[in-house]
């Protein structure tokens, strides 16, 4: 609240001009963290979802409409992740700068290759379907780099006088990400091909990047809570497929994972779906650091 208010007040005081920081609204903390990496002090950043929030389910709070009405840049994950609330903010904001088609409207998914785009017909008997692909791509550092590049380009187009700074920050971020990726690759190399289970279908991009395999999910269908019969099936699957860990995210009830773990002895690994959603997972690189380390230590022990 206080952070919000101070941003709100400072926005009200700072008059709009090209010299003032870009007012950036990001829907989720991962996008916010990337925007901060590239924008530095040249942006005034507000992130709508809190780290622990399930980004599918957010309130279209009137204060968000107010923030959007003053924003120069709006960044969304896209692929229907924010479909339950963002359209009302965009409509309510009546701010052409952030409407689709303008440089201030950034759909980050336009620079990544979506996975799990359905090839056949889909309908809602299949649960929460995302017809344009799985929206949890930022858990893969390759996507993080691509989105950071997009932010650099858009910020530069909107503040050409600061383009040099955006380029430098991107170069710095990219270098740190290179180092981190080398570290992560080394850490997970011994576990290539390991089969994992997830609670919700969040981890397919992460698994793809590090050569892991998602053997199944506790949810029988995306967004549909587990049934006893499905958990029974999962318990069989774990022994049949030699699944080595269950990845759990902060906004899912861990009861089901606990039940499966008790019945199979498989380890539960709490990972961060957003920067800051687990202890010591702050920042975009910090989030993946946390995830790689937590998973690798669990798999080390599960040999």
């Amino acid at each position: 609240m206080n952070a919000f208010l101070s941003i709100v007040f400072s926005l009200a005081i700072v008059a709009s001009s090209s010299a003032s920081p870009l007012r950036v609204v990001a829907t989720t903390p991962d996008l916010g963290s990337l925007a901060r990496e590239i924008g530095g002090d040249d942006i005034d950043l507000t992130v709508l979802a809190r780290p622990g929030d399930d980004p599918h389910f957010l309130d279209a709070k009137p204060s968000f409409i107010r923030l959007m009405s003053r924003a120069d840049v709006y960044i969304e994950t896209g692929l229907d992740l924010e479909v339950g609330w963002a359209p009302l903010l965009l409509q309510g904001a009546r701010n052409a700068r952030v409407m689709p088609g303008n440089p201030g409207h950034i759909d980050a998914s336009t620079v990544i290759d979506p996975m799990e785009v359905p090839t056949g017909p889909v309908d809602r008997s299949m649960g929460d379907v995302h017809p344009t692909g799985n929206p949890h791509y930022l858990l893969d550092p390759r996507a993080g780099r691509a989105v950071a590049g997009l932010l650099r380009d858009r910020f530069s187009a909107l503040r050409p006088d600061r383009a040099q700074a955006f380029r430098e920050r991107f170069a710095d971020f990219s270098r740190r990400l290179d180092e981190a990726e080398a570290r992560w690759d080394a850490r997970l190399a011994p576990h290539r091909g390991a089969k994992l289970l997830g609670d919700h279908n969040l981890w397919v991009y992460f698994a793809d990047r590090f050569g892991l395999e998602m053997a199944g999910y506790l949810e029988p269908k995306p967004g549909v809570p587990p049934t006893t019969r499905h958990l029974q099936h999962i318990i069989e699957l774990i022994s049949r497929e030699r699944v080595r860990a269950i990845i759990v995210s902060p906004y899912f009830d861990q009861r089901h994972a606990d039940f499966v773990a008790r019945n199979t002895g498989v380890r539960i690994v709490p990972l961060a779906h957003q920067p800051g959603s687990r202890p010591s997972s702050d920042g975009y690189i910090g989030m993946i650091d946390h995830n790689v380390e937590a998973l690798a230590s669990a798999l080390d022990g599960a040999k």
Binding site: R50, D53, D253
Partner: peptide, 11 residues
């Protein structure tokens, strides 16, 4: 008045 904690599940 609306209240929703930070660690909500599906709202």
């Amino acid at each position: 008045l609306k209240w929703r904690p930070a660690d909500h599940r599906r709202g």
